[in-house]
Design a protein around this nucleic acid. Structure first.
Length: 428
RNA sequence: GUGGCCGUAGCUCAUCAGGUAGAGCACCGGAUUGUGACUCCGGAGGUGGCGGGUUCGAGACCCGUCGGCCACCCCA
């Protein structure tokens, strides 16, 4: 056995699950199109500074989770830990932001964390970003889009929307001061991590899982009371829109997010069916980000979801499409001239019946072993060439999915009629 | 970075006062001439994660290390 293994937390996605991934990706692709979102593809590596400035210096992501290295030019590069910063960078760099812009992307992201259920170091996100609209109708759009996705995937009952507004920078600062003042008087009751965050990032104490900390927070000032007028009005309008659209949500005043660029609306779709990693999709508004990364002052709102978690959830909910066979037709031949004939015929069939999955038996072996392979391929039909067929210029067609033993149902057709017969048998 | 559990054939697991390993599935071959699935027979496949220690002897006990899973932190 080889000593070389995949890097911890970076998993191979093997043939038993790739159909599930393809299914999810296909559904998402057409969903995005149906809302007018265009796909963009950004590099996996960016200048480290992009994430420092975009995601935020004091976030966990930047502080301890990035894959950062020097390239041969001594330039500091980082494997992207999330997609928004790179998407914004690309949009600024190529001048896409002089109009409303709806973009989506998918790909691998990297965070140096201990792997656990629903979390790996290389993981895959689908994200969408809508630029250029500051009003909450756009917030509603991205949320409605995600809500539709759950319906299309059959998991609408298994995810819940949590919603909050964290206001603009000024109101958030005011709230932070009030929160810190309140918590300082109760430092001893806080868990260790929360004590540390009093200095670094006090808002994140809010979603601590520690019971005692949460008890302390019960008496804390509420973020809602500090919201600026515009944020409050927009939040109220967003809720109106969601109500009217029939999207259920619960208000979670302690929902903050771990990335610094958010303001106003933040949301998460969560599930209780994935162990500790319950967030399937998270997002919000980031009105200052474009400017902070060197662009004009362009508002934005978006979300990202984790494909691994989505696939896990679908599996958990029994909503993955049934496994399909990898072949429709399996071609068996015995002897050189038969194989020559079979190979050419298979190529002609692929020309004539595109989409038909034709697997050619290679590597020889007895008829028996070839038929075993044919059966295991899941193909509906075996095409059989032997000396008899070559001599008579025919092909034997054997159905494999019926229960009969012997050669019942097997037929011999003239070589010239093969294509037509297959069309009829397979209804293609 | 911290904690808990775990590491025996490709996969799921078993055995045993500590006396140098088995099963099921999967794989390969066979059961009269060129035909799968069910059944039967046979075969291949493990330096028991790695290193050290205790012992006459260790997969089984001890230590270390590496790896996996789950949880904390945080998020997708």
């Amino acid at each position: 056995m080889s000593n070389i293994r995949a890097i911890r937390g970076m998993n191979d996605i093997l043939p038993d699950v790739t159909p599930s991934w393809q299914y999810v990706e296909t559904v998402i692709g057409s969903l995005m199109a149906s809302y007018g979102y265009s796909e963009v593809r950004m590099p996996i590596v960016e200048q480290t500074d992009l994430f420092r400035r975009g995601v935020g210096e004091t976030t966990d992501i930047v502080e301890k989770e990035m894959y950062t290295f020097l390239d041969r030019n001594e330039e500091s590069l980082t494997l992207r830990p999330e997609g928004t910063a790179g998407c914004v960078r690309a949009a600024i760099q190529h001048g896409l932001l002089n109009t409303v812009q709806r973009l989506w992307y998918t790909g691998a992201m990297f965070r140096y964390e201990r792997p656990q259920k629903g979390r790996q170091r290389q993981f895959h996100q689908v994200g969408a970003e809508a630029f250029g609209v500051a009003s909450p109708d756009m917030d509603a759009e991205v949320i409605l889009l995600t809500a539709r996705l759950w319906r299309e995937l059959g998991i609408a009952e298994d995810v819940q929307l949590q919603l909050n507004s964290i206001g603009n920078a000024q109101s958030r600062n005011a709230y932070r001061d009030a929160l810190v003042a309140y918590l300082r008087e109760r430092v001893d009751a806080l868990d260790e991590d929360s004590q540390r965050r009093l200095d670094s990032n006090p808002l994140r104490i809010l979603d601590s899982k520690n019971q005692e900390t949460q008890a302390v927070l019960d008496g804390a000032p509420s973020l809602v009371d500090f919201l600026d007028e515009e944020s409050a009005a927009d939040f109220s309008r967003l809720r109106e829109l969601l109500d009217a659209a029939g999207v259920a949500y619960s208000l979670n005043p302690r929902l903050v997010r771990g990335l610094d660029y958010y303001n106003k609306t933040v949301f998460e779709w969560v599930t209780d069916r994935l162990g500790a990693q319950g967030t399937v999709c998270g997002g919000g508004r980031y009105d200052g980000l474009v400017e902070q990364l060197g662009g004009k002052s362009v508002p934005g709102v978006g979300f990202a979801m984790g494909i691994e978690r989505l696939v896990l959830l679908l599996e958990e909910c029994g909503q993955l499409p049934p496994a399909e066979a990898s072949a429709d037709v399996y071609v068996v031949s015995f002897g050189d001239s038969a194989q020559t004939e079979a190979l050419a015929a298979a190529e002609q069939l692929r020309d004539a019946l595109p989409g038909l999955r034709i697997v050619q038996h290679n590597g020889g072996g007895s008829f028996k072993s070839q038929m075993k392979k044919a059966d295991k391929s899941g193909a509906r039909l075996a095409l059989i060439w032997g000396d008899d067929e070559v001599a008579a210029n025919t092909v034997s067609i054997k159905p494999l999915r019926e229960q009969n033993n012997e050669r019942v149902g097997q037929q011999s057709v003239a070589r010239a009629e093969l294509e037509q017969t297959l069309r009829a048998l397979l209804a293609v």
